[in-house]
Amino acid sequence: MATDGHGTDAGGPAVPVQEFMALPGRAERREDVYETCLENVVRRLGLDVALETEREDLWTWGHVVRAAIRDACRRGIVLSGESFDVLLRAAVHEPDPSFNRWFIEPALNAFGHRRVQIALLGYLRMGTDLERAGAARAWYWSALPLRMPVVRAENGRATGQAETDDGSAVVAEWNEAALREFVSNEHVDVRRCILPELSLRKSAYPPELHALVDTATGIARSHPDEYIRHRVEHQVGD
């Protein structure tokens, strides 16, 4: 069975067993930006990775950095406020939607769901089209449970501690912003990446947005991109 392109890593959100077409690779890529993001993660987190190491290709280099993040999180790591920013930026620019989890999860555990989701919402609203698409892909992981008890923020916040703030308001803001962005932004990567997590049920929105749901559904059904046309039929049929 094909999934929606996010994979089925243990511990991730449940993926319904459906015949989803795989999310295509990005039409627009900035490998130079992604490489800089990886270098900043290594420096800011103090990872045991030699930046001067000869790199066969960017794909392999990404694996090296992500493996170093995983090892650091297992041993225990304290993340600064600056670490939050570089992790979120790396997640947004990670070209593979299965791998951006490795940047999102440490940030979630150290800083909480709300801060991560607000940051992704900022990218969706004010980022470049590349960043908007990346934020939509990263959003998939932003509700993961906190399972890294030795990953902490510099301010001493206890990892795994129940968050007292209600994140439902941020989720509602995201849903509305994603719906509006899908309708107004014609960039194919943005629409491809928003659609899998976009509710097309009117009951998910206030009455004043119901007409926009119809517009989004119509755009998706008549879109020249095969993935978008395929995906919307699964979502409106659920």
Rank of each mutant, 00 (worst) to 15 (best):
E82A: 15
S80Q: 03
P13Q: 04
W59M: 09
M1D: 07
P106W: 01
R221I: 07
L121A: 08
H113Y: 03
W141L: 03
M21F: 06
G218P: 02
H234L: 14
R221C: 14
A133M: 10
W61P: 02
R152M: 14
V64N: 06
G81R: 13
V86E: 00
T53R: 14
A22G: 03
I228R: 02
D57A: 10
L124K: 03
R66A: 00
A50L: 07
G127R: 07
E173F: 01
V65I: 14
T8K: 13
L124D: 01
L200V: 15
L200Q: 09
V86D: 04
S199N: 06
T164D: 08
V188T: 15
G156I: 07
L79W: 01
V213P: 00
H210R: 09
L146C: 08
E54N: 03
Q18I: 14
M1K: 08
H93T: 09
R101K: 12
P106V: 04
C193Y: 12
F99A: 07
V150P: 01
A110F: 01
V151L: 04
D166F: 06
A138W: 08
G122R: 14
P16C: 02
D57S: 15
E163M: 04
L120M: 10
V116M: 07
F103N: 04
E154I: 12
F182I: 09
A216C: 04
E226I: 07
S98C: 09
L209E: 01
L51Q: 05
E94L: 06
R89K: 14
Y205E: 04
T217K: 04
A119Y: 00
V150R: 14
E94G: 07
R157D: 05
S168D: 12
A158N: 02
W61A: 08
